[in-house]
Design a protein around this nucleic acid. Structure first.
Lengths: 191, 191
DNA sequence: TATGTTGTGGAACGATCGTTACAGAAAAGG
DNA sequence: CCTTTTCTGTAACGATCGTTCCACAACATA
């Protein structure tokens, strides 16, 4: 069997995820990743093949452990009438709490969209699929919240809320109050 | 007086602007900037002090020659009723025309927001001010387009259109059809 | 023409990037 | 025990980054 790993893979990916989240792919240097994960290059390369491999693992971890748990109530078979409200209110609270990665850096994938790494075809597709996943979940919440409205109206509100969401996540870094204002605008749309 | 410059500064800044626009600040290396501008490092450093100085000049050029001319009809003292429509339709046409920098890379400043350079305080403030400028212009257009609506409604529609705009510019790189769809959604709001 | 000043070309700088090579450590199986 | 396999630590790799230095070219002025 050979020598066993001295670290928990999920923990290391989470640590790397935080570093990519905070600094972006380009500025998350290997020395930085060594410090944040507590591993040496040799171990990281042995386990993930490359910096990019580690990033891909971080993205998967981000979707599974950050994005989808928060969307859970909107992607379940039965969606509560106020699940969308809870989603936007919960995200707002997360973005408003100082010191957290979310509040400081917004969204790992939205940030990647405009960065150099966003030119990579795989990353491109990942971000596009991520946005589509957000919009599907939001629409399900909108349907549950406005059951009497038409499908066209559901689409319209879902599109607007998703755009406000994307804008909020992008603006988190550069204009924090405005990011919160965008989430408030989404909550107004749902009132 | 010494030896005169052999190049037109505005032309060089425009060339550098296109490079920063396409590749982002981080991946716009000095060799690349030398090729795109047709100048050697020594001339670039002599004229702009640093890569960052050239970037700042490119940003100023971007605002003055790309952003504000397109916003002109919305920032004038008298705003035509359909000026907002024209703005979003014109931007949609620009993003839809293949081969252009706009269509390939969206917006220089929006892209900078999520990239590592977006952590710089000055860039942060520049992007925030840029978004505010967009929102002010859009609101003026909304007021002219819906003169009978309330101020609160003006704010609401302006906020939504601005978010759709920001989202569209961000998504241009990663999901081009969706970027156009966001601009269409803004046009629907104004119909 | 001689001098002073400014712009350009070319080469090199030190620093840092992501990646790799290799020896030793820690387990399982013979 | 010894061998095999897997993981880790150290050190280095070549490449590229942004920046600087310096000699020379091109102008204005005296």
């Amino acid at each position: 069997m050979g020598r066993p790993q001295t670290f928990d893979t999920a923990d290391v990916v989470r640590a790397a995820r935080a570093t990519f989240w905070e600094h972006g792919y380009e500025d998350a240097s290997m020395p930085r990743l060594e410090v944040s994960t507590g591993l040496r290059r040799s171990s990281l390369y042995h386990a993930f093949g490359s910096k990019r491999g580690l990033f891909d693992a971080a993205v998967t971890s981000y979707l599974d452990e950050v994005v989808r748990p928060r969307l859970a109530a909107l992607t379940a078979p039965d969606v509560a009438p106020d699940a969308v409200i809870d989603y936007f209110a919960g995200l707002r609270a997360a973005l408003a709490s100082p010191g957290t990665v979310q509040a400081e850096s917004g969204c790992l994938l939205i940030n990647a969209a405009g960065a150099p790494i966003g030119k990579d075809p795989v990353v491109r597709e990942t971000v596009a699929a991520y946005r589509a996943e957000l919009r599907t979940a939001v629409r399900a919440g909108v349907v549950a919240h406005f059951p009497d409205r038409s499908a066209a109206e559901h689409d319209r509100v879902a599109d607007l809320c998703t755009a406000l969401l994307v804008s909020a996540l992008l603006l988190t870094r550069v204009d924090h109050p405005q990011a919160l204002a965008n989430l408030d605008a989404a909550l107004d749309l749902l009132a």
